[in-house]
Structure formats: structure tokens, C-alpha cells
Simulated scan of single mutants.
Amino acid sequence: MGKLVGGLALLSLALFMVLGFVRADVDPLALRTMVALLIGAGLPAAGGVWLLARYRGVGSRIEHRREQLRRDTLEAEILRMAGRHDGRLTAVEVAGELAVPTTTAEELLNELMARDMADIEITDSGLLVYTFHDVRHLSEKESARGLLES
């Protein structure tokens, strides 16, 4: 709420300053008048617009996009890792190689599992192993045929 009030206050101040310059008996084309108008009205107006944009969530949308790009990059790295590890990974391997916390690695692996890109298996000792079925069968792509061919 403070961003909204601050933005509106700065825009009001800028408008007040512009009206003052319009009513003043000064040469509007003089350099000092233009500089004074820029400082007196332009800077508050820019600050007000910036605060209103932040209030409307422009910055948070950029942060959301940045976070989504980060997660997409990490998922791509996990798939690359799966290719190097015969399609089988643990959360500890992912965390160690990507330098992320184990909880983040587990979240990413569970998201891939939820999107049906991975399955989960468990060893006799209780270790969770994420298997990437498509990655495990990449070697078969050379023998692929058309859908209607038998």
C-alpha cells in the first residue's frame, strides 16, 4: 500500500511542479528552465511511475520468470546428468553435482516424476532412485520406425 501512496504522491508533486512552471514567467526554451523542469518534475514523475509499477507487481513478475528459468535450467541439467548415469539418479547425486540443497534436488526430481518424466524405485537399503525411462532407452532411437510400419 505504501508503494501506491508514494507513487501517487510523487506523481501529484510532479504535476504540481509542471503547473508551477507553466504559470511562471520564464523562458520555456532556456536551458536552465528545462533542467529545472527535469529535476523538479521529471525525477518525481519517474519515481512515481517506478513505485506504481512495483505496486502493480512488475518486479515480482520478473522475479517469477527468473525463478522459472532457473528451475528449467536445473531440470535440463538433471536430464543431462541422467544421460550420463544410465537414466538413474539419487537426490544426493543431483544435489552434489548441481550445488543445490538436497531438499531442492528432491523437489526438482519429484516435479519431473509428477510430469511423468521419471519413476521412483527403492533399493533394499531404502535409497530412493529416480529412473528416467526415456533417457534409459535413448540407445533405441536408431532402430525407430514409423508408427504404421511393423
Rank of each mutant, 00 (worst) to 15 (best):
Gly146Phe: 00
Leu10Gly: 01
Leu138Met: 11
Ala105Pro: 01
Gly7Lys: 04
Val94Phe: 04
Gly146Ser: 02
Val49Trp: 10
Gly6Gln: 11
Ala53Tyr: 15
Val5Ile: 14
Leu19Val: 14
Asp86Ala: 12
Ala99Thr: 07
Ser125Thr: 12
Gly96Val: 03
Glu142Arg: 05
Arg84Tyr: 13
Leu147Met: 11
Leu109Ser: 01
Thr123Cys: 11
Leu52Glu: 07
Val94Tyr: 02
Arg70Ala: 12
Ala105Phe: 04
Leu148Ser: 10
Glu107Cys: 01
Tyr130Ile: 04
Val22Ala: 09
Asp124Asn: 13
Arg145Cys: 01
Val49Ile: 13
Ile39Cys: 03
Leu37His: 04
Thr90Ala: 08
Arg66Trp: 12
Pro101Ile: 01
Leu112Glu: 02
Asp119Arg: 15
Arg71Asn: 02
Thr131Tyr: 10
Leu138Gly: 07
Met34Glu: 07
Thr103Lys: 05
Phe16Thr: 11
Asp134Trp: 03
Arg70Asn: 02
Leu109Ala: 00
Leu15Lys: 10
Ala82Ile: 09
Phe16Cys: 13
Thr103Met: 03
Ser143Phe: 04
Arg61Gln: 14
Ser60Ala: 14
Val58Leu: 14
Glu67Thr: 11
Val5Gln: 13
Val49Glu: 03
Leu79Asn: 12
Glu75Ser: 08
Arg61Asn: 09
Pro101Met: 02
Gly20Ile: 08
Arg56Asp: 06
Tyr130Phe: 15
Thr131Ala: 14
Asn110Thr: 05
Val100Glu: 03
Leu51Gln: 09
Asn110Ile: 01
Glu106Cys: 00
Glu111Asn: 06
Arg32Thr: 13
Leu52Met: 08
Ala24Arg: 00
Ala9Trp: 03
Leu128Cys: 01
Leu8Met: 12
Leu51Asp: 11
Thr33Ala: 02
His85Trp: 13
Thr104Ala: 11
